[in-house]
Design a protein around this nucleic acid. Structure first.
Lengths: 145, 145
DNA sequence: TATAATTATTAGGTACGCCTAACTTCAACC
DNA sequence: GGTTGAAGTTAGGCGTACCTAATAATTATA
């Protein structure tokens, strides 16, 4: 391991590469820049750092690719992002656009503990809803929606 | 208005001054440093910035005091902090220490919209609990605790 | 009141992350 | 194969926020 803790910004770069690989097949400097709303030289700089940490593979003027360890980190961040978005929209009833914006920023600062509790809470809410429905049906009341 | 958006760090400085004024009557450079786990020169630097923005009053070697506008910001941040802490402990069942740590970081990145929904959600949970209790009592079951 | 200890400031340096401007490389087309 | 435009890199600069070391001011104590 080169260094253990990754900055929020570097996590964002990894996450954007991950998403671009997923949606565009390949990740290019220009697309990363556009995704993150920064200029290309900022991306070049970041890629140099991530390369040195062996989180990406990147040859001059070539596509950017995640390494296995880079992918692991990206997936973790992405998962947090997804879980937070679900929580914000599903539980807190935030509109999707705002939920995404908040998730983007919260995902870098929220603890593992809290993420776990959030997921636990969501599982519980789902069960409660199911239970409610069952009860209503059992008592012959019309189910909501 | 000098400049509109304050960095997370500057918000932290304001918040710590606010808390120190509240708990210690006065805020001193040394105490701020201790509170935020930074060295005194970092505090001196930050205070210069906040002074220029008219958010604090600070004469060389004197106590630090919030101005009206500084206090307003500090109170807003502090309120978010409190609401998030309540949410984390009360709803998500996070232990108080971890809740405080998360609140400290989330308070700077979460949107107003989401904060509002969090508060709404908490009010709703409280009501639901009350309702449950009432129901239980009405049906003659022993109330929890 | 002079000295010691504490508190605060200034000076100067580092790391990060962004930018613009200038240059290079690549690919695509004539 | 040379030209041209897009994509990418390098160079150099800026702002933020932290640090250590050195210095200054204040407060406490002998």
């Amino acid at each position: 391991m080169k260094s253990l803790k990754l900055s929020s910004n570097m996590e964002d770069y990894l996450e954007s590469i991950y998403n671009l690989e997923k949606f565009n097949k390949v990740a290019r400097v220009k697309d990363i820049a556009q995704w993150l709303q920064v200029k290309m030289p900022s991306v070049s700089g970041a890629l140099r750092v991530l390369s040195r940490k062996n989180l990406i593979k990147h040859e001059r003027h070539g596509y950017v690719e995640l390494t296995a360890s880079g992918r692991t980190i990206a997936e973790q961040v992405q998962q947090k992002h997804q879980d937070l978005t679900d929580f914000f929209t599903g539980v807190l009833r935030i509109n999707p656009a705002q939920a995404a914006r908040d998730a983007c920023r919260v995902e870098h600062v929220v603890s593992r503990t809290t993420m776990n509790q959030i997921k636990k809470f969501m599982r519980k809410s789902v069960n409660q809803k199911k239970t409610k429905k069952r009860k209503k049906n059992r008592y012959g009341k019309k189910s909501s929606r």
